[in-house]
């Protein structure tokens, strides 16, 4: 039964996650998995601090690498606090609070000049409610859950360099209210856990600009190799629609990217501190027009579970 479910999820190619602003030259910024694999246990607060380093380099036309004399690179650094609380065994709520640093450099050979633009600030906060259709129990270790969320326009969209209003891709926020729905499946066994999820984020317009809606999908497996150590392997993908500006599609937006994500997780302090390290390498990238591709990403996470009430549960 669980195997059929897993296959179903793989074939659906669907994942949970949240999105960040990007357009023609921004790196893809997967955050898949930061919301945790399962709904938090009842009356337990799962707090996690994630640090992500996302680097994009090399231009692509379609799926092929294109010549780029400008050596364009972008580096997105993002710290994200996630707070997930289990209201009951079936219901959980999660807040995703990002702080973003963005750096973009380009070399202009014609004028022998390096262009560097930077911004930082609070990103768009997401609030997600999750409902467990099949709540996890300690017999089957299986959970199927759905989620509905909203991304609030809390991030700044008016950051400037040299007094010049920066393009949307460099702003910490998108300015738009976005809505997302997700579905996820978790199955734990003695040696292995598997997790499959997908989410779809519907974007809305802000000040004439609309980032493309996005579909995320993730399939991961954790192997318990030692008492406190897990190794994991995941495939994480994003399909992003074209952006819209004043009702028209700007050049070179929309993409499909897939990363392979090996990872390590260690329970450093039993019950209190879990460290996770993930590396993301692109295995497939297809772009509309010519765009900057992902080079690699990594994520470091420190997570803790805090029981808020010491009841019978």
């Amino acid at each position: 039964m669980s195997a059929r479910l897993v296959i179903g999820f793989i074939s659906m190619s669907l994942v949970a996650g949240s999105a960040a602003a990007q357009n023609c030259c921004a790196p893809a910024v997967p955050q898949q998995g930061i919301m945790g694999e399962t709904i938090a246990l009842p009356h337990v607060l799962n707090a996690a601090l994630h640090y992500e380093y996302l680097r994009a380099e090399d231009m692509y036309t379609g799926s092929d690498r294109a010549c780029d004399l400008t050596g364009t690179t972008t580096t997105w650094k993002r710290s994200t606090l996630t707070l997930a609380y289990g209201v009951s065994s079936r219901i959980g709520v999660t807040a995703v609070i990002p702080y973003i640093w963005k750096i973009k450099t380009r070399y202009l050979p014609a004028v022998d000049t390096q262009v560097k633009n930077t911004t930082d600030g609070l990103g768009d906060v997401s609030l997600v409610g999750q409902f467990s259709v099949i709540p996890r129990d300690f017999v089957t270790y299986r959970e199927v859950s759905i989620g509905l969320g909203v991304k609030l326009p809390t991030g700044a969209t008016d950051k400037r360099n040299y007094g010049f209003l920066l393009p949307e891709e460099l702003q910490p926020g998108t300015g738009s209210w976005d809505f997302l729905g997700s579905i996820s499946f978790y199955q734990g066994w003695e040696l292995v856990d598997i997790y499959a999820s997908s989410s779809y984020q519907v974007t809305t317009e802000s000040e004439g600009f609309k980032f493309g809606s996005q579909l995320f999908y993730l399939l991961s497996a954790n192997l318990h190799v030692m008492g406190r150590l897990d190794v994991s392997l995941a495939f994480s993908g994003t399909v992003r629609g074209e952006d819209r500006q004043d009702g028209e599609s700007p050049e070179s937006t929309g993409r499909h990217q897939l990363w392979i994500v090996p990872g390590l997780q260690a329970q450093v302090i039993p019950r209190w501190l879990r460290l996770q390290l993930y590396f993301e390498a692109p295995v497939y990238q297809h772009f509309n027009g010519t765009q900057l591709g992902s080079e690699y990403n990594f994520r470091l996470t420190a997570a803790s579970s805090i029981p808020l009430f010491h009841g019978e549960e």
Partner: peptide, 15 residues
Amino acid sequence: YEWDPNASWLLPMSS
């Protein structure tokens, strides 16, 4: 002095 573009394909280099 501040500058606002109408499009998203411009980047400032220096001022």
